[in-house]
């Protein structure tokens, strides 16, 4: 690293002296004493061009020495390409969802565990009593219901939504991927399975939420409008709401948080939920099949365009 820096400094000083040399020669030829501004202007231009030429010559030299791996040799000098993983629409869905879910958990869990002091603290001291906490819980519920409907419309109505929905459907590859991952964990496989756009891990996360939404919204609605049904509907709804609420909370905390927060690869958090982007490295690592597909599609597109230009030129 130090040697590299030394080389670079050396090149800088050469460029400086070379540009001085060029200006002196020019002054010698025209035999006119130039102003300071003129000299500065010319020096700036000359230095810039010399720098540009030298770095492009360096690139050429490197490529000649080692044709394939320019990028591998000098990765830090290259801006990494990013891929859009989640569109704006989907990111907004996720934001409304987690705001609602956190609200629901904070106001719901104390009622499942009323005997704990922290529960009483949240409901009585923080929220100002049962009435407020149930009201906030219902506001959270409305948020979640909106997300549910929004997502259904998105899955049916939007092109990306439709594509993603079909890609989310579990298939045989997921089963073999899972087995492969297990073999990888016990050391019988050198590399883990290669995932497409959605791994079985993400599919589990998605369908767990799907199942949770159906149970929670369904049972919650029964409890909300309990007077319309016989009481055992309410009792069943309450039992399911309480049990699934705990299961969903634990699943989120354990599974989702591990994958997007506590996993050493992304700790403390993957920011994809905010900007929707994945870097090329992440794409290659986590979704190699999708990456291949995108690159293949893009190269096909380039070939097609080149053919088109050729045709136009020839025609």
């Amino acid at each position: 690293m130090n040697d590299k820096k030394l080389n670079l400094d050396k090149r800088e000083s050469y460029i400086k002296s070379l540009s001085n040399n060029i200006i002196e020669s020019a002054v010698d030829i025209v035999k006119i004493e130039p102003t300071v501004e003129q000299i500065n202007e010319i020096r700036e231009e000359v230095t810039e061009r010399l720098q540009y030429e030298s770095s492009s010559l360096l690139n050429e030299a490197v490529t000649k020495l080692h044709p394939t791996s320019l990028s591998e040799m000098m990765p830090e000098e290259r801006e990494e390409r990013s891929f859009e993983r989640f569109g704006k629409n989907f990111r907004y869905q996720h934001m409304l969802m987690f705001v609602s879910v956190i609200t629901l958990i904070v106001t719901g869990m104390p009622l499942k565990f009323p005997e704990f002091d922290i529960s009483k603290f949240i409901v009585i001291d923080l929220l100002g009593g049962l009435h407020n906490s149930t009201l906030i819980h219902r506001i959270g519920a409305v948020g979640l219901i909106i997300v549910g409907i929004w997502h259904l419309i998105y899955s049916v109505g939007s092109k990306v939504g439709r594509r993603d929905f079909f890609l989310m459907i579990p298939n045989l590859k997921d089963a073999s991927d899972f087995m492969c991952r297990m073999r990888y964990y016990i050391g019988k496989e050198k590399n883990g399975p290669k995932f497409g756009r959605f791994s079985f891990i993400e599919k589990f996360d998605y369908w767990a939420v799907y199942w949770g939404m159906v149970i929670m919204i369904g049972s919650g609605a029964i409890m909300w409008f309990k007077e319309l049904f016989p009481k055992y509907f309410y009792d069943i709804g309450r039992e399911m709401h309480s049990d699934e609420g705990l299961l969903a909370t634990l699943s989120i905390i354990i599974w989702h948080f591990y994958n997007v927060h506590f996993n050493p690869e992304v700790f403390p958090m993957s920011w994809t939920w905010w900007h929707g982007q994945l870097t090329e490295t992440e794409m290659k690592h986590h979704h190699p099949l999708e990456y291949e597909e995108i690159i293949k599609k893009e190269s096909l597109e380039i070939i097609k365009q080149a053919e088109k230009i050729n045709e136009e030129e020839n025609g």
């Binding site: 297990m182 964990y185 016990i186 055992y232 009792d235 069943i236 039992e239 399911m240 049990d243 699934e244 705990l246 299961l247 634990l250 699943s251 354990i254 599974w255 591990y258 996993n263």
Partner: peptide
């Protein structure tokens, strides 16, 4: 209610055990 509660208990235990072992292996 008893059977729903039992079913969810079993489901929860299974899911959590699965998730935990997966994470630990990972």
């Amino acid at each position: 209610i008893y059977y729903i509660s039992k079913a969810f208990l079993i489901l929860t235990v299974l899911v959590l055990a699965g998730l935990f072992s997966f994470i630990i292996m990972d």
